[in-house]
C-alpha cells in the first residue's frame, strides 16, 4: 500500500502527514469502504432476503438480489403470526419505560443536583453503587418478586421493573449540575414553588439530556429480550424480540424467509429512529460513554 502512495508525495515524507491530512489518503478510503461493506452487508442481505422465497434462500451459492421479489413473508408474518400485536406490545412497553425514565430520573436528578435535603448523599451513593451491579444479579429475585405480585404474563410485569434506572439519574444529575444555580433563586424571588421551578424553569433547559436519555432508553427497551422472554408467557404478551427468538428456535426455525422478514421488522423501525436522531445520539454516546 505504501509503495503505491509514494509517488503522490515524493520529496516530502516528513510533512506528509500534515499535507495528507488535508485531502485524506485514497487507500484509507478503500479500506474503510471495504470495512463499511462488511459491516453493513448483513443488514442489506437481511432486507433483500426477506423478499425472497424459501427455494431461493436455500440456493448454493446464495443470491444477492431476489429473483422474484414478493411480500409473502410479510403477509404471513402479520396475518398468521400476529406480528402486529407483538409490534404494539413492543411500542407500548418502550414508550411507557421511556416516559417513566424521563420523568422520574429527571426529578431525582434535579433534586440531587440543585436542592439540599436530608438523605441526599445516601441516595446518591446507593444509586451509583447499583450502577456497577450486573443485571444477572437482580434477575432471579426480580422474577420472584414479579411472580409473587401476580404480574407474570402482564404488560405491567414487562415495564414496571424498568421505569427508573440509575444511569438515567446519573445522566440527568450531571447535566443539571451544569446549569446556573441563579435560575433557582430567580424563580424563588418570583414566588414560584419549588416544584414549579423544576417543571417550568429547569426541565425546559434539559432538552439535550432528555433527548439522549430518551433515545437510549427507548432503544434499550425495544431490544430488551431476556426479561420479556421469561415474563411474557402467552402469545398476546410477546414483544418482537421474544416472538422472533421463539420462532427462530421453534417450529418455524427452518422458515428462513419468515425469520428474515421478522428480523427486518425488529431492526428497521429502530434504524429509522436512529437515522433521524443520529447526531444527538452519537453526541450522547460520546459524552456518556454508554449505549
Amino acid at each position: 500500500m505504501s509503495v503505491d502512495t509514494a509517488p503522490r508525495r515524493v520529496a516530502k515524507p516528513r510533512s506528509g502527514m500534515v499535507g495528507s491530512s488535508q485531502g485524506g489518503k485514497w487507500w484509507l478510503y478503500v479500506i474503510l469502504t471495504v470495512a463499511l461493506v462488511a459491516v453493513v452487508a448483513p443488514f442489506v442481505w437481511m432486507v433483500l432476503g426477506s423478499f425472497k422465497g424459501e427455494g431461493e434462500l436455500r440456493q448454493v451459492p446464495p443470491t444477492w438480489l431476489p429473483e422474484s421479489a414478493s411480500l409473502d413473508n410479510y403477509t404471513q408474518l402479520f396475518d398468521k403470526l400476529s406480528f402486529g400485536q407483538f409490534f404494539t406490545n413492543s411500542i407500548v412497553v418502550a414508550v411507557v419505560v421511556t416516559i417513566g425514565n424521563l420523568v422520574f430520573c429527571s426529578m431525582l436528578g434535579y433534586a440531587l443536583a440543585m436542592l439540599d435535603f436530608k438523605g441526599k448523599r445516601f441516595i446518591f451513593v446507593a444509586v451509583m453503587t447499583t450502577l456497577m451491579i450486573p443485571g444477572v444479579v437482580t434477575f432471579v429475585p426480580l422474577f420472584v418478586l414479579v411472580a409473587n405480585a401476580g404480574l407474570i404474563d402482564s404488560l405491567p410485569g414487562l415495564f414496571l421493573p424498568f421505569l427508573v434506572s440509575p444511569f438515567g439519574v446519573f445522566l440527568m444529575r450531571q447535566f443539571i449540575l451544569g446549569l446556573p444555580k441563579d435560575l433557582l433563586d430567580a424563580g424563588r424571588v418570583d414566588g414560584a414553588g419549588e416544584l414549579r421551578i423544576f417543571w417550568k424553569i429547569i426541565l425546559p433547559l434539559c432538552g439535550p439530556a432528555l433527548a439522549t436519555l430518551g433515545i437510549l432508553t427507548f432503544l434499550g427497551s425495544w431490544n430488551n429480550f431476556l426479561w420479556p422472554l421469561v415474563v411474557a408467557q402467552s402469545e398476546d404478551r410477546y414483544t418482537l424480540p421474544v416472538a422472533l427468538a421463539l420462532y427462530s428456535t421453534g417450529q418455524n426455525s427452518t422458515n428462513y424467509g419468515l425469520l428474515l422478514a421478522g428480523a427486518t421488522v425488529v431492526i428497521v423501525p429502530i434504524l429509522v429512529v436512529f437515522l433521524i436522531f443520529q447526531k444527538r445520539f452519537i453526541e450522547g454516546i460520546a459524552t456518556t460513554g454508554l449505549k
Binding site: 448483513p42 443488514f43 442481505w45 431490544n223 428480523a263
Partner: peptide
C-alpha cells in the same frame, strides 16, 4: 455504528 443499535435476536437470525 449501525450494528450497535440492532436487536441481538434479529442479528442472530441473520
Amino acid at each position: 455504528y449501525m450494528p450497535v443499535i440492532t436487536s441481538i435476536v434479529a442479528v442472530a437470525v441473520v
